[in-house]
Nucleic acid binder design. Structure first.
Lengths: 347, 347
DNA sequence: GCCTATAAATGGAACGTTCCAATAAATCAA
DNA sequence: TTGATTTATTGGAACGTTCCATTTATAGGC
């Protein structure tokens, strides 16, 4: 069981009775080699249990076949879906994506990026951790490594971004709530250090204004982008005098939290308080009641990001355009009409 | 923006007016270097924007600082939780885990493993894809690379496994159902090509036998380990004459599917049909009704696996013991008593 | 038979590190 | 002062590939 010295290209050469150059050529699938020679070499490779050393190869080849995916929260199913979309694209291009998780921790992110670069990746797809400093990617840019952001945008950075149309999504959702007769609306969850937050909140605000909801009839409460955060937001909101009757949530996780908190108070989500989510994760349709949410096509965004990356690698550039993915509101059962507006309904 | 030739250790040496050996020593944090010299070197590194080339280093150093995590289904939150547990341990050991997804595809798994080995990982933690052939890991074992399996075990393999006590978990859950008065039980989901399946099903069968349920009063229906699979299982079961009144599901995803299908038929999970899940993913407690499930401590299993891997790497061995993680039944609201047994309850 | 053209295979110099053995500089004992 | 010891620094030979420039073998044309 002792790990004997690993076989190298030279060992195979000896075994097969050819030169190391020939073996190298075979490994690269060159057509300069006579088929029967290639066969002999491949046989030797199999016999010896040879493992290709890509590190050594990259020493000469300059460009590797792995790209790094750095994700801020792997436990959020949304990102897992996106990762799967990317993988689909890369696989057919012969590229292997390695995923690393930063758990929303900028320090961890720094380490992970460093490690990936040292490993010699050909490119980086990053969904930045919250609180990432603007300079965090300077070194990577300096190194001329292709990099694209997904979902999140950094304040003043020229790195291309693949993200959904947050503004429009929020607009649509808000208009939906207003259309249901709600006149006191809330925006729940998220925090202002995220650009995405401002985009979604902006859509919410503009829709309110455009559709005649006075600013004093809107309530914005920041909070964690998790179930827990949603619960907290609802508590805060209902503690106010003249509370809102509907809320647009920063994402689905927050919305789930809100629904949970409503139930705990004996209120029925949908009937007693309308809630809309954002992202439309798979769970959304399985909740009771099924959650109305803004669908962003996570896998599609992942694929898009992967394509942009491939293009950048092939054209040896570090520039690319942003891509704003289409969104659409998926209406389910979590938004009834405003109770007070529709008194006629009640017994 | 053109990617100028990357700086090497020699460039820094020149910049700092020392030899490459000195730079190398500084990079490794050796205390053989005079502090002020080290400082000079570090300054040069910063100025030049140098990126360490780990591939080149590994050419001499034999062992790297990255380990590969190969996961069969990243979209299953269970595995994401496990991955996070592992990361926690590795991080403090200065090891960077790279995650790769196989999407239950043995071919993809083959590619991913090959790529990881070529990259020179120090070890592999694998949750094998369904349908993995027994020989799939022969090459890795031959190479003397430490490897541990999580969750799933391969038929006749001596690779150490970190997994929950499936048999006992299933036993507990089944006993719970029987205790509630159910006399016709089903086991839903999973397929017999998984060792885990046999473990869980075995626990179910033994509990039935031990607690006086005749074999003809049990129903086993195989199916996908997903919501969809759960839906299909329930349909099959209810189509039978004299159908079961309770089911142990292969995992939580199946259980969610079963609950969904019950609702669609106008049946209330818990009251009209008891269901127990397996894994206790976070969602379980948030469902309506909250799902009774066998908790397996996914993050804890991940940590355990990481520790075993570290030990193997340090002791340069490829052998280790299996670890069977404790399980416990978390009773929530998805298992009412058998309706037919408890007629007295009804109006 | 010779010359040229093509096909197949090969040696050797890189690539960016590490680490051993060797050197240079500083310190100390006598 | 001299030699021995300790402290800092340094060449140079690996490590396992790739790829250019050659060499060798094979075939074709005359």
């Amino acid at each position: 069981m002792a790990s004997r010295p690993k076989a190298t290209i030279l060992d195979i050469a000896r075994e097969a009775g050819v030169s190391k150059s020939t073996v190298s050529l075979v490994l690269q699938g060159s057509d300069l080699i006579r088929p029967e020679t290639a066969l002999k070499v491949r046989k030797a490779i199999e016999d010896v249990g040879y493992v290709y050393n890509r590190g050594a190869a990259n020493l000469r080849k300059a460009h590797s076949n792995v790209i790094g995916m750095v994700i801020n929260d792997l436990t959020n199913p949304f990102f897992a879906e996106m990762a799967v979309g990317m993988e689909r694209v890369f696989q057919s291009a012969g590229i292997v994506p390695f995923i690393a998780n930063t758990a929303e921790n900028p320090v961890r992110q720094e380490e992970v990026l460093k490690s990936l670069m040292e490993q010699g990746v050909a490119g980086l797809i990053v969904s930045p951790a919250r609180g990432t400093t603007p300079g965090a990617f300077r070194r990577i840019e300096m190194a001329g490594l292709p990099i694209v952001f997904t979902m999140r945008r950094l304040p003043e950075s020229r790195i291309p971004v693949i993200a959904p149309d947050n503004h429009r999504g929020a607009w649509l959702a808000t208009a939906h709530l207003i259309g249901k007769g709600h006149r006191r609306l809330a925006f729940f969850g998220g925090s202002s250090d995220l650009v995405v937050y401002h985009e979604r909140l902006g859509g919410f605000r503009e829709a309110c204004e455009a559709l005649g909801i006075a600013k004093r009839d809107t309530l914005v409460v920041e909070g964690e982008t998790s179930r827990k955060g949603g619960i907290a937001c609802l508590e805060t909101a209902l503690a106010m005098t003249d509370p809102p009757t509907a809320a647009l949530c920063f994402n689905d996780a927050v919305a789930f939290g809100v629904m949970l908190a409503l139930r705990k108070r004996g209120l029925e989500p949908g009937a007693d308080f309308a809630v809309v989510g954002f992202d439309d994760v798979i769970e959304a349709q399985h909740y009771m009641p099924a959650l109305t949410s803004v669908a962003v096509d996570s896998a599609g965004l992942g694929e898009r990001a992967a394509h942009v990356m491939l293009k950048m690698i092939q054209s040896r550039t570090t520039r690319a355009e942003d891509h704003i993915g289409a969104v659409n509101l998926v209406v389910r059962d979590s938004c009834g009409p405003d109770r007070r507006a529709g008194m006629g309904d009640a017994a």
